[in-house]
Design a protein around this nucleic acid. Structure first.
Lengths: 271, 271
DNA sequence: ATTAAAACGAACAATATTAAACATTTTAAA
DNA sequence: TTTAAAATGTTTAATATTGTTCGTTTTAAT
């Protein structure tokens, strides 16, 4: 917080440089990153522009997904969101809930594991929790997962090749499925749009479900991560029977009546 | 900031040299890199050209992605690319030169082409120039290339699967090579650390050269992109004879004596 | 629920910057 | 030298940025 801001201050005082808009926005971002929270008035004084200008700046930064606008100021998004800001705003939907689910999932991972990580906004958060492991191999078709894992030198990453779906930032298609089948993993962490004992695991996207399916089929243990609203619901494309699952990891809002019937199918529900 | 700028000042005063466009642009880049922020008026006075000329320069540099234009001037490009941090540092080495090489290369690409893009700091810049095409398929092992291409909706991207080299941000290894051989491309754009008629195409990295080699072997036309300092030089690992090349695209500083011997081998040198 | 203070955004005006068009100069080639 | 092409400068209308005012919305404290 000291260096850059300080320099700008000096510049303003001595050389009377007018800080242009883009530069000012970067400064704001930098300040937000360091202080976690900023308010319009303080920024206005700090940067020597009107509050209206600050508001306009914050709104634009908010629009780009670089910070979270609040009444009176803004708060920072964590690095993860920054990296993905141009990827997927959907990630922010109920993010806290998704992270909590992933925190329960990571407890099942051990050093030496070879794990599949599916694409999808819930499971994505798992990748940021893997830095604690000393020896892990991750096989994934999700670009955001790969980018996140590049931060962790102890993790060996393998990408599943194939055509890139530019919406999901993940590979899919025949080649990808063949590619997966050349690997074997100790654990698969997969996502879905619905799961039910009668209807099995289902998805809204047929193409991506082929990937998910083959990850599950090539792993010793299968973990389905999804929020509780998806349990005992069916999406349109059923691609696996529920019986393939070993664990269903979800949030605390789950209907407790579901626990027993799933347990009877040898699926343990974690919440 | 001192050295180059100072020399120019002296030149202007004593010898009244007019700084030509390309040199001026490099100078502007250098100033921006060091001061983080420049404004049109100051540059205009500093370099003794009209504001309109400075604006034109800044716009061209902006277009090439070498700085960010602002209202009133320009600022240094965001190194907020946490993802590619160490990649990006190397990227700055004579970026302008690399971009110019890639601009010559892009003229050989047509709609409907299927192209391989190798990893490497020179060829990386090619990916930024592909937005103009309506129908293109790109096969690559380079994550930075993939991330750039995701900006262009008309381009179909295929990733070569395999293990990720976290330094190069690219896949490599046995699986990757197998993966490449399942594709065929109309054109391959490859890089190297050295090329000579006697010694062939050579690289400093044996693992990555396996990828490069197989891209070349599976393409109709092969384009080697490298700066002129690498021509008629040998790096330690030779992986292909020069005769596989159709075009060698480089910068204008090339020794013109090389043109004929390469032409005799059916390799056209573009500079 | 009511109320006062704070924050907000729309609209406008003032100023600075920009790009387009055209004129001029410089450069390189014939 | 002549000529065409490229680069540069000048003028001017259009555009972008910013600050101010003011009515509206949100917040938080009663």
């Amino acid at each position: 917080m000291f260096d850059l801001l300080f320099l700008i201050q000096i510049n303003k005082l001595l050389i009377n440089i007018v800080v242009p808009k883009e530069q000012r926005k970067r400064l704001i971002l930098e300040i937000v990153q360091k202080t976690s929270i900023v308010d319009v008035d303080a920024l206005s004084k700090e940067l020597d522009v009107s509050t209206m200008t600050i508001r306009r700046d914050l709104n634009e930064l908010n629009q780009k997904g670089l910070l979270q606008r609040t009444h009176g100021g803004a708060i920072k998004l964590d690095n993860l969101d920054l990296i993905l800001s141009n990827f997927d705003l959907k990630l922010n939907d109920d993010k806290l809930n998704k992270i909590e689910i992933c925190e329960k999932a990571v407890n099942f991972i051990q050093d030496g594991d070879i794990i599949y990580i599916d694409c999808g906004t819930t499971i994505f958060h798992l990748s940021k929790l893997l830095g604690r492991f000393k020896d892990l191999r991750v096989i994934t078709n999700s670009l955001p997962v790969v980018l996140e894992l590049l931060n962790f030198p102890n993790i060996k990453i393998s990408i599943i090749g194939g055509e890139v779906d530019s919406n999901r930032k993940a590979t899919y298609g025949k080649k990808s499925v063949e590619n997966i089948n050349e690997y074997h993993a100790t654990k698969a962490f997969i996502g879905a749009d619905g799961v039910s004992i009668a209807g099995g695991i289902s998805s809204y996207d047929e193409r991506e479900s082929a990937i998910t399916k083959n990850m599950a089929l090539n792993a010793d243990k299968v973990f389905l991560l999804c929020d509780s609203s998806k349990i005992e619901k069916n999406s349109f494309f059923k691609f696996l029977p529920a019986s393939i699952l070993n664990y269903l990891i979800t949030d605390t809002k789950i209907n407790k009546d579901f626990i027993k019937p799933y347990h009877d199918q040898n699926i343990e529900i974690i919440f």
